[in-house]
Nucleic acid binder design. Sequence first.
DNA 1: TTTATAAAGGATAAAAATATCTTAAATATC
DNA 2: GATATTTAAGATATTTTTATCCTTTATAAA
Lengths: 143, 143
Amino acid sequence: MFSKACKYAINAMIYISTLPGGNDRVSLKDISKAINSPEAFTAKILQVLVRENLLSSIKGPNGGFEIHEDGRKTQLYRIVQVIDGDQIFIGCALGLEKCSEDHPCAVHNKFKAIREHLAGMMLTTSLEDMAKGIKNGTNFLKI
Amino acid sequence: MFSKACKYAINAMIYISTLPGGNDRVSLKDISKAINSPEAFTAKILQVLVRENLLSSIKGPNGGFEIHEDGRKTQLYRIVQVIDGDQIFIGCALGLEKCSEDHPCAVHNKFKAIREHLAGMMLTTSLEDMAKGIKNGTNFLKI
DNA sequence: TTTATAAAGGATAAAAATATCTTAAATATC
DNA sequence: GATATTTAAGATATTTTTATCCTTTATAAA
Ligand code: FES
Ligand code: FES
């Protein structure tokens, strides 16, 4: 469904969102430990998220990554879009050049419903929402 | 969502299902032309489908691929399972070792519904069903 | 029985995704 | 200002996926 890069991105963003916020930042090392991901690869993914303004970073001692108040409203949809692109939301499930009503593939109609279900869910799920379950121990980021 | 191999497999199986059946077989060349896929790669995929008995093949002149009467009842689910494995149906969306209620990832509950929607659709969609739309020109296998 | 045809199987190649390493830039603390 | 820390960036490596090529096997038809 999602690439590994995208899974790491989602879990990392959620993890960062569980932390206090304020002046505290969390380091790459802590993030990849918390989500059980390869550190250097995770760094590359976080770079993209910073570049796309889903996340902010500060270099140097006590530096690290942080998500501001309003950044926690970020939709799951947006994270996937930034890392994996939006083919999962708008592309043809069977590989036609584009998905359309005019030239539908063999599963177009049946898939449309699922894709809308998926997109709807991801548009209405925010980091805040997901972080809640992690903070209260209902949900998990690794293993 | 699906690998390219899987998309080719699905389209190929549908294409073969649109043909009369009887004694007529269709060649690799015709298949990859009909679904616009790389011939040699498609051959590899068809080999797997034959090995898994979703398809039968005959070598030599007038040889080719064929799907028998009852083979056309094959579920879309089964094709995906054979080519891509069933991680899409049973694996964790965020990469946890396994998907479970006891140790759910951050999106488990929301994803479960979508995955069930997807699995249900694929279990109830057969080659026969999909071939119908192709035969009457409502749906398309390429471009 | 020879020849041609078509899939199977094995080896190899190219591209993309995943992962690591090394150096540079920024910044806080001494 | 020097030093240590932490992310950014660029280069490189490994693995997986996608794709191609070549040889073998089966079979139909001449
Ligand atoms: S055309 Fe294939 S999903 Fe719409
Ligand atoms: S635990 Fe992640 S989808 Fe179920």
